[in-house]
């Protein structure tokens, strides 16, 4: 398994597919892993359960996090990531269709690095996602 660059936490397969497609167009989806719920995302990052063989120091460059997730919600995932010194430096981008104020407020309070609304229009969606991928994988300089 190559080094994972993007952890996409998304329970909706259609959204996941659209995201992957948008990234692929720009050749940004080679090292992407999709976690289908919050619990899996945390297991992956903390190398627990089925991911126990992963190397904890091998951190993804960015986490694209949906908020509405089964089992453990997106905000709880965010809280755990930002509260755990081992993984708190991973940039977390909330990618959601919720523009509800409490969500936005809470996400930033918990330390989200960015908050992006999923556009409905496919063209805009593609543009947004590819820009995000490009920015976090190429432009952004991470803290290791």
């Amino acid at each position: 398994m190559n080094e994972i660059e993007i952890l996409l936490v998304e329970d909706n397969a259609r959204d996941a597919e659209l995201t992957v497609r948008a990234l692929k167009k720009n050749n940004l989806a080679n090292n992407l892993y999709i976690a289908k719920d919050g619990a899996k995302a945390l297991d992956f990052l903390l190398c627990k359960g089925e991911y126990s063989k992963r190397d904890l120091t091998n951190l993804p460059k960015v986490v694209f996090l949906d908020l509405k997730l089964p089992k453990v919600s997106g905000l709880e995932v965010l809280k755990t990531i930002k509260g755990d010194k081992r993984i708190s430096k991973i940039p977390v981008v909330v990618v959601t269709s919720s523009s509800e104020e409490p969500d936005v407020k809470e996400a930033y309070r918990l330390g989200a690095n960015s908050y992006v609304l999923k556009p409905l229009d496919f063209e805009k969606f593609k543009t947004a996602i590819s820009k995000l991928g490009y920015y976090w994988l190429v432009v952004n300089y991470p803290y290791k």
Binding site: R14, D15, L18, S97, S98, S99, E100, L120, F122
Partner: peptide, 10 residues
């Protein structure tokens, strides 16, 4: 806002 929009986006 979440569930109704996702299928629309699809």
């Amino acid at each position: 806002s979440h569930d109704l929009k996702a299928p629309l986006r699809a």
